[in-house]
Design a protein around this nucleic acid. Structure first.
Length: 618
RNA sequence: GCUACUGUGGCUCAGCUGGCAGAGCAAUUGAUUCGUAAUCAAUAGGUCGGGAGUUCGAAUCUCCCCAGUAGCUCCA
């Protein structure tokens, strides 16, 4: 047995940037002991696993600093995350910007001292005794949960000792640049019934310039915030008078309608019919559908003529009624019925977020009724449709499969069939996905499609949910080949998810500079002199006749000023018209993206733009 | 809902320990008719999120609401 560090050194694989190692896929400390002949891969900060070690160690430095400054604080957990690390602490001291600065300073000291990280093991009773003596009740709880037979490891960092599975950096001095980003609340064990702890988030790098780049990137990304751009570009806004109830302004409405048009066109091609069901239905229906039992706290209700009604939080019950009005043959299946349905949900005030999380939104819903043997191909078809949509907008996305939650309807067998059908379609689809245990809807498992916003948070947009329950509850049936009644299976699915959320993401994706085909304003005509206005009017008429969305700016301002304004309004093309153009019957088209100007005749310009629109060029 | 923080003209923000509400941009008006990211000048615009309290005096201090931000929980 030898030290990993020594083996790497002998093989000349060690350098200052090596911070940990991997043996058979398992990440270990450089100080770990292993067989001389082991296959060892050195890890640097550039490896994802290396980052984890780095950030995890940084979280321990954070914990040590907190204990130095506020000894009464009790530590819980401090993992690395996708971008950095955090530590959850139960403390009488309320952390704020000031204390965060103090903690940062203390961390800097610990790093400067370049303290060695040393791992040691303890038997369970001794481990518990030590943590009890240190007054760390959460750590005692954590030790209790470590399975019998697993090792109970600690890391010491000078006087600071913490329960930890590791691995760690060999010394705190490697953390060359770090910053504590924010402190917030977080429930112990992620359960809202438990005590709220204080969570401190941080980020760390191996060099200062990387930290600066990271912080700049965050600042830059905030400029894409859809809430800000929505207001600036007259797309949408939310006012105090309607928290969570967004307003769509004229330009936002143009964008929204264009998206809906595209959606209708695609769904027609893919064999969907469209319906519209009421936004309010009586409560008896919601009892029948099961929504009342599972969802009533989130529903808005009212009375009409002594009868209780609720605003729909989902479109399915309406869709069930529409299906049920007729007899269906197996020959008519699958039946794909779509609806742009406005739903209302009472979301917690703290959960609201611009257009991403609202209290009323339009789902681009569809319910597919089918025979059991059509399940896989229908799911596959929807996945394909979603993929097409997202590619059209240039989105990359993540797929998640969510399985049976605790509070659910239906039998084990049904859940098993449904879940494996989704898995089969996913495997056939050949795209990576992760599994969220227990995160499904109460009526069935689901596949979710997640898109990223400007600061890297992901939002669920598309979803495909398999449902055996609704057809049961609504006693849906079709007549099979055997001339007997059978129960259809159903899929709920959305592609955009919520049109509002999708527009939010879209706005951030393009930073408000939408591709020509969905730009609320596609071009603006800018005159140089007053004498050019009548020629400009002719051009405007011609472009409008050709279905382009045109604006004009004939104000008595310098051309540079008007260009600046059009540029800030993110309009794709500026048509600059002066005597030069008018005399030759031409236009000077300035492209927003490149800032380059090309002179051409109006018909060529129309042709060029038409091509750009038709190909949905991003 | 929970924890922390924030709320001052349309927008972005200044206003230190309580003492006459400010700036830039936008808007309006006038002059300028101008060639690829800001012409000049003037004018107007605010019960300082709302309410209560402390005080001779509150944008500023205290309390209660409302709304927002970040995260947690929950969710499309």
């Amino acid at each position: 047995m030898k030290k990993v560090y020594d083996i790497l050194k002998e093989k000349n694989l060690i350098s200052r940037s090596v911070i940990a190692a991997q043996i058979n896929g398992e990440t270990v400390d450089l100080s770990a002991m292993t067989d001389e002949n082991s296959e060892i891969k050195p890890l640097t900060f550039d490896d994802p696993e290396g980052k984890r070690v780095f950030w995890h160690t940084a979280s321990h430095v954070l914990a040590a600093a907190v204990k130095n400054l506020y000894p009464e604080s009790k530590l819980t957990i401090g993992p690395s995350i996708d971008n950095g690390f955090y530590y959850d602490i139960d403390s009488d001291t309320t952390f704020n910007a000031e204390t965060l600065q103090a903690i940062e300073d203390e961390m800097a000291k610990i790093i400067k001292e370049d303290i060695k990280e040393e791992k040691f093991l303890l038997p369970r009773d001794e481990a518990i005794k030590m943590m009890e003596e240190k007054n760390e009740p959460y750590k005692v709880l954590l030790i209790d949960r470590i399975p019998e037979g697993d090792e109970i490891s600690f890391y010491s960092q000078g006087n600071f000792i913490d329960l930890c599975a590791g691995p760690h950096l060999y010394s705190t001095g490697l953390i060359k640049a770090f910053k504590l980003l924010q402190c917030t609340g977080a429930y112990w064990e992620g359960n809202a019934k438990n005590k709220m702890l204080q969570r401190i988030y941080g980020i760390a790098f191996t060099k200062k310039s990387d930290l600066d780049d990271y912080l700049n990137k965050i600042e830059e990304a905030k400029r894409r915030d859809h809430r800000k751009l929505g207001r600036e570009l007259d797309l949408f806004d939310i006012y105090d008078e309607g928290p969570g109830f967004p307003f769509f302004l004229p330009k936002g409405m143009v964008l929204r309608n264009l998206l809906e048009n595209y959606w209708r066109e695609q769904h027609k091609i893919h064999g969907y019919q469209e319906i519209k069901t009421p936004i309010m239905l009586n409560q008896e229906l919601w009892h029948r559908s099961g929504h009342w039992d599972h969802y009533k706290d989130n529903m808005y209700s009212t009375k009409i003529d002594e009868t209780d009604f609720s605003l729909k939080p989902m479109n399915c019950p309406g869709g069930m009624l529409a299906f049920k009005r007729k007899m269906h043959s197996y020959r008519d299946l699958p039946q794909r019925v779509a609806e742009l349905g406005l739903v209302h949900r009472h979301e917690l005030s703290g959960a609201l977020h611009g257009l991403m999380r609202v209290r009323c939104f339009t789902q681009d819903d569809a319910h597919i009724f089918m025979t059991p043997d059509q399940i896989e191909s229908e799911i596959f078809g929807v996945m394909d449709l979603i993929d097409n949509f997202y590619n059209t907008f240039g989105f990359s996305y993540k797929i998640e499969l969510s399985t049976r939650p605790e509070n659910s309807m239906g039998s084990d067998e049904q859940w098993e069939i449904a879940t494996s059908a989704l898995k089969a379609a996913l495997d056939k689809n050949n795209k990576p996905y992760i599994i969220n245990e227990g995160d499904g809807a109460f009526y069935g498992p689901k596949i979710d499609f997640h898109l990223e916003d400007c600061i890297g948070r992901t939002w669920q947009c598309g979803t495909i949910q398999l449902d055996f329950q609704m057809p049961e509850r609504f006693d849906l049936s079709y007549i099979g080949q055997d001339n007997e009644k059978h129960r259809p299976v159903m899929i709920h699915r959305v592609v955009f998810g919520s049109i509002e959320r999708f527009i939010g993401i879209l706005t951030e994706q393009y930073a408000g500079a939408f591709p020509l085909w969905i730009s609320p304003v596609q071009m603006r005509i800018l005159n140089i002199g007053e004498n050019n206005i009548s020629y400009c009017n002719e051009l405007e008429a011609k472009l409008t006749e050709n279905s382009f969305r045109v604006e004009t700016d004939y104000r008595n301002e310098k051309i540079g000023y008007k260009i600046r304004e059009a540029q800030l309004a993110k309009i794709p093309y500026m048509l600059v018209i002066g005597d030069k153009e008018e005399q030759n019957n031409l236009i000077a088209a300035r492209e927003r993206v490149t800032g380059k100007t090309e002179t051409m005749d109006i018909n060529s310009f129309i042709e060029k733009c038409r091509e750009e629109v038709n190909t949905k060029k991003i």
